[in-house]
Simulated scan of single mutants.
Amino acid sequence: MIIDGLHKRYGDVVALQDMSFQVEPGEIFGFVGSNGAGKSTTMRIILGVLAADAGRVSLGDHRIDLQTRRRIGYMPEERGLYPRMKVGEQLVFLARLHGMSPQAAHDSMHRWTARLGVEERISSNVEDLSLGNQQRVQLAAALIHDPTVLVLDEPFAGLDPVAVDVMSEVLREKAVEGIPVIFSSHQLALVESLCDRVGIVVRGQMRALGGVDELRSRNGVTLEVVGPPADTRWAEGLTGVLAVDHHAETAATELLIDPAIADDQAILAAALRVGPVHRFATSAPSLTELFREVVTT
């Protein structure tokens, strides 16, 4: 799926400005940003719920139209189910709207309600379910027609840890099948563990885009060396070392390094020449720390 140069304005408010990214087959893409950043607007344009002022959305070589939209599984952030309709009947109804036969629709309904742990509630009205179970049914509605693309807006909201694990497994399984998956979430630790790539959106613009490890290390990685003396001259001038600092309280020397060009074995050898090394470990900012940095600059 290719999102290319989307622009959207509401009067004087710019909702999207040159929003561009793509999601490859079999890739799980995390779409993150503060409330109002433009995530839901982008997803609604992908689905055709909103029209962009400029730009295009395509699947493969074809611009997305009514037929290709039928192949997308969409889960809105807001509850999109009929509250006084029974779970099973509703899922079958939605599957039929996507062109499935009555038998295929019933089979798919039973398969997904069992997979997501709500099979015992298929005769219940949606409004009688807990918020977590309503969210499970929403995911079943997105999956009921065996889509070839998944677009999920805050799919993990309101779920308990067990349900989060189940939903994560489903998304991984779909990615293994070659289905591109895009989802938004404020649970950044979950995004970090689940996604292949991440896009961080700020005020309608894509401010950071790339693999999780790539983004976390884009401003350097911290290498902590415990053992060498406070005199840090042993580390100065080494390839890939961007900055050096010594912390007397922990006897640790912290090096900010560029992981693309730094040679950790050369750094270790240099440290050992001036004394024993008791700890030698790298760490990169978490996605949460990176997110704070991106949205505040």
Rank of each mutant, 00 (worst) to 15 (best):
L159I: 06
L194R: 02
S108I: 12
K174N: 02
A189L: 11
L129H: 13
V164L: 07
A142R: 00
E127K: 15
Q138F: 11
G158S: 03
E224Q: 15
R203F: 05
V137H: 14
A175K: 01
I200T: 09
S168R: 10
T232A: 11
S168I: 02
V226M: 10
N125Q: 15
R111S: 06
I182D: 00
S217T: 09
T232I: 15
V221H: 12
L150D: 00
S168A: 09
E177T: 01
G211M: 04
A157I: 03
N125T: 08
A208E: 11
E224L: 14
Q138N: 10
A157C: 02
D146L: 06
V170Y: 00
R115Y: 12
P228K: 13
G210W: 06
M109I: 07
P180M: 06
D231V: 08
C195L: 01
F156T: 08
I182A: 01
A208G: 07
R207E: 07
N219Y: 12
A157F: 04
L150Y: 00
L215N: 07
R218Y: 02
D160K: 07
G117P: 12
E224K: 15
L131C: 06
S185W: 05
T222V: 12
G227V: 01
V201P: 08
I182R: 00
V191R: 06
S184V: 03
L194D: 01
H186P: 04
G227K: 04
R203I: 01
G204A: 05
I144N: 04
Q134T: 06
Q134G: 08
E127L: 15
I182W: 05
D196K: 02
L131Y: 13
E169L: 02
T222M: 11
Q134P: 07
E173A: 11
S185L: 04
E127I: 15
L190I: 02
D165S: 09
Q205R: 15
A140Y: 14
P180I: 03
Q135S: 07
